[in-house]
Computed example of a mutant assay.
Amino acid sequence: MEDRVSELEVRITLAEDLVEELNLTVYRQQQQIDLLQQQLRHLYRHLQEAPTTVDKSNPRDDIPPHY
């Protein structure tokens, strides 16, 4: 009976370590997600503020310099 209790204690300790490691992984991933969202918002704002110039010329209309 004592061996079974010891085995259960070991398993619980390993499970607690695994849960702690998984929590740390989730925390780090959330930090990365937050940073990526912040960068995306910044990029979106930058694109919204940039002047929109559309070049409607056709590349076929450009004559190469060797002609």
Rank of each mutant, 00 (worst) to 15 (best):
Y44E: 05
S57R: 11
D62P: 01
D17R: 15
Q48Y: 11
P64K: 11
N23S: 12
V10T: 10
H42A: 08
D55W: 03
N23P: 01
D34Q: 10
H42V: 07
L24V: 07
L14G: 01
Y44V: 04
R4A: 13
Y44H: 04
R28C: 00
L35F: 06
V54F: 06
Y27N: 12
P51N: 15
Q31T: 03
H46C: 09
E21Y: 03
K56F: 02
R60V: 15
P65Q: 03
T52W: 04
V54I: 09
P51G: 09
Y67V: 05
A50H: 09
R4V: 09
L40V: 09
E7K: 03
H66L: 05
L22Q: 15
L47V: 08
A50N: 07
D61G: 00
R28P: 00
D34G: 04
T52Q: 10
L22R: 15
D62I: 04
Q31F: 02
L43K: 08
V26R: 07
E16H: 09
T53E: 14
T53N: 10
Q48H: 13
Q32P: 00
L36P: 00
R45S: 07
Q31M: 08
A50G: 00
V5E: 09
V5M: 10
Q39F: 00
I33R: 08
D61V: 03
N58L: 03
Q31P: 00
I33D: 13
T52M: 05
P65G: 01
N58Y: 05
I12A: 14
D62W: 06
N23Y: 03
Q31S: 06
L47A: 11
L35G: 00
R60N: 08
E16V: 08
L24I: 05
H46P: 00
Y27A: 12
E20I: 05
S6D: 13
M1N: 10
L24M: 11
R28I: 09
R11D: 08
R4H: 13
A50Y: 05
R60D: 02
L22V: 15
Q38P: 00
E21C: 02
P51L: 02
H66R: 04
H66N: 04
E2M: 12
H46Y: 10
I63H: 01
I33C: 01
P64T: 13
Y44W: 02
Q37E: 13
A15K: 10
E2V: 14
Q39K: 06
P59Y: 01
V26T: 08
S57C: 01
E7T: 03
T52N: 10
D55H: 02
T25R: 04
Q32L: 13
R41S: 15
M1I: 11
E16A: 08
D62Q: 05
P65I: 04
L8I: 13
Y67D: 06
